[in-house]
């Protein structure tokens, strides 16, 4: 977030990510998340949102990706060379796209895996109860194998599992994907509560810009591996480009005046 607190919790500084030594996917991405803040990372499919999150959590290595330029600082410490488990221990947890629950483990076992890196057994039990109070649906299904619960419940489980690590920052990758609007609202509400009540900072990657911009304070818009726009959520909601391409509010063909020539050019870049 530009011009906010002097040291943000997370500071991604001009990173470049290459997969398989040759595929350049991120071409200089910078973003910030303040302590306790809630920030969106918007963009169409393939824009590079997941890659950005995986660069932060360092899940890139198992996909043969690598941060080749730039830095990532978390709470003042450089983390771009730390392995994934070390990043979790420092307080950053990613909730991966597509839910990725452990299907053959029960709901409760899934939650307990979230606490794997913690050594404070007593509060693990308390946090389990806390997750169940945020997600009462999970409490009822605690001894069922996670592969058999509904998609919405799996998404809740994935978020709850991440919370069990007691992170200071959660990276949520498209939690709304494939869910009915009512469920999306329910899940977004709980994310907002986790942010407010548990003081967990959130970086939310979403294609669903309308939903995300209602939730966050600040947003970044990505396109083919770059941040092309950023600003306060209210500003982004009013931005013509965002409206047209992500919120579906303005119809094409209403273009007028010279200002729109620039707009047009920008749109072409976005679509390329």
């Amino acid at each position: 977030m530009k011009g906010s607190s002097p040291t943000p919790l997370l500071k991604v500084n001009n990173i470049e990510v290459i997969y398989d030594h040759v595929i350049l996917v991120l071409k200089g991405v910078s973003l910030e998340v303040p302590e306790g803040g809630i920030v969106a990372l918007l963009g169409a499919n393939g824009a590079g949102k997941s890659t950005t999150l995986k660069a932060i959590s360092n899940l890139l290595r198992v996909e043969r990706g690598e941060v080749t330029k730039g830095t990532i600082e978390f709470a003042g410490e450089r983390i771009e060379r730390k392995d994934a488990a070390a990043v979790v221990q420092r307080g950053v947890v990613q909730v991966m796209e597509g839910r990725r629950v452990f299907e053959h483990l029960t709901v409760e076992e899934n939650l307990l895996t979230g606490a794997y890196s913690r050594r404070d057994g007593r509060s693990v039990k308390q946090d389990l109860d806390r997750v169940y109070s945020y997600f009462p649906k999970l409490a009822a299904r605690r001894s069922i194998k996670a592969g058999y619960v509904s998609g919405g419940e799996q998404q809740m489980l994935a978020i709850g599992r991440g919370f069990m690590a007691r992170p200071r920052l959660m990276l949520l990758d498209e939690p709304s994907m494939g869910l009915a609007p009512m469920l999306v609202r329910e899940i977004f509400d709980i994310v907002a509560r986790l942010n407010r009540e548990e003081k967990v900072a959130i970086l939310l990657a979403e294609q669903n810009a309308a939903g995300a911009l209602r939730l966050v304070q600040y947003g970044y818009v990505m396109e083919s591996g770059r941040v092309v726009l950023d600003g306060e959520a209210s500003k982004l909601r009013d931005n013509e480009d965002v409206k047209e391409f992500y919120l579906g509010l303005t119809g094409v063909g209403q273009r007028k005046s010279y200002r729109d020539v620039k707009h047009y050019r920008r749109r072409k870049r976005w679509l390329s």
């Binding site: 299907e103 483990l105 895996t113 690590a165």
Partner: peptide, 12 residues
């Protein structure tokens, strides 16, 4: 079950 997801919750 899912080694990448395991990594994401901090299992080395």
């Amino acid at each position: 079950d899912d080694h990448e997801a395991a990594l994401s919750v901090g299992i080395p």
